[in-house]
Amino acid sequence: MTQPVSGPITLDELQSWLVERVGEYVPDLDEKVDPNQELGEYGLDSVAVVAFAADVEDWLGIRVEPSAVWDHPTVTQLAKFLLTEREQQAA
């Protein structure tokens, strides 16, 4: 399991971590995960994102609803959202 991250994190780090996770969920993908592609197109449908959101929770140590992935369906969008969310939930 992923070790929770503590301390500050950059948008880039967040983004590459998400890209890595998506890769794990789609083990037989033979291309690089495009951060601007919708996750649903990688097979991370509305049901699969439930576990995905939980992974993100574990790593960032904040509450993340699966609907966050519905609202921010690409890695780029999700990373931006999560960064703000982490700052706010830490505050």
Binding site: E24, V26, G43, L44, F52
Partner: peptide, 9 residues
């Protein structure tokens, strides 16, 4: 369950 890795699809 602990050994389970979630996959898409």
């Amino acid at each position: 369950i602990a050994r389970l890795r979630p996959v898409a699809g």
